[in-house]
Design a protein around this nucleic acid. Structure first.
Lengths: 133, 133
DNA sequence: GGAAATTTTGTTATGATATAACATTTCTTT
DNA sequence: AAAGAAATGTTATATCATAACAAAATTTCC
């Protein structure tokens, strides 16, 4: 008989829940602030949870913000294909998942003999709402 | 009569010279270390010089490394179009400037009503040399 | 089951990156 | 030269991330 799963909390799930609640990316320390009341004490607890979530594809790191965002698709695996549009006015981040386009970017590098393991495509500008008159 | 240009050193030029000497991106603090002997004392001096260089297009920030690299083209202005391939084995960074591809990425966002001001395309993996048998 | 090995988690400390705030100097304008 | 504007210097501090090791939980193997 297998032991019942530990009563210990599931830290990655707690981190993911916070990210899903947020309409914009959160830094590791912003997550820590929000999760102190749930037993988090140190940055490393956040970073370790984030690492697992990123491996699972449920969280993406936004490199140009040093922050993290929940993937908008349940159980997605397009870590390699994510494209972010970051609004500099309201902070909202829109995620695209254009595998075709990401593929073309990769091809561009691989044509030069480079073996791509991971790609980052991010844009900054104004979202539809914020660029309206 | 205009005053003769100050004997004061040109900090951005010093920073750019260091970046050109390097075969890989340098962090602001790595630059500071290399430039202390030339009169730099504080990070802000480096960051301010980098900002000017980035505006001029002669230096790019590599977001996924928090580091900076001299544009490999003299006087280039393709800040909007740069594509980097970063080797995780040797640290070398290859720069592409495929305006067409960068344009397609932009189009992808703008089709959704997003107004792109700046784009970041970076890949990590193994360069040709490092992926050889 | 229980000892040994492995993995995970907690905690402290510190390293690395970046900017705020304000004083000082330099430059421009008149 | 005086007044105002812009750039630079300097100190302090905010922000992001991980090393190192201790403690606890889990797995492995007998």
């Amino acid at each position: 008989m297998t032991k019942p799963s530990s009563a210990r909390v599931d830290r990655p799930a707690q981190v993911l829940a916070q990210l899903k609640k947020s309409d914009r990316p959160l830094s590791a320390y912003a997550l820590l602030d929000r999760l102190r009341s749930e037993g988090f004490n140190a940055p490393l607890q956040i970073y370790r949870a984030l690492e697992k979530l990123q491996q699972a594809g449920s969280v993406h790191r936004v490199e140009s913000l040093n922050a993290f965002i929940a993937c908008h698709r349940e159980g997605c695996r397009h870590t390699q294909n994510a494209i972010f549009a970051i609004c500099e006015s309201c902070g909202a981040v829109q995620e695209f998942a254009d595998a075709n386009l990401a593929g073309r970017v990769k091809d561009c590098a691989e044509a030069g003999g480079f073996r791509v393991q991971q790609s980052t495509i991010e844009m900054k500008g104004l979202c539809k709402d914020c660029s309206a008159p």
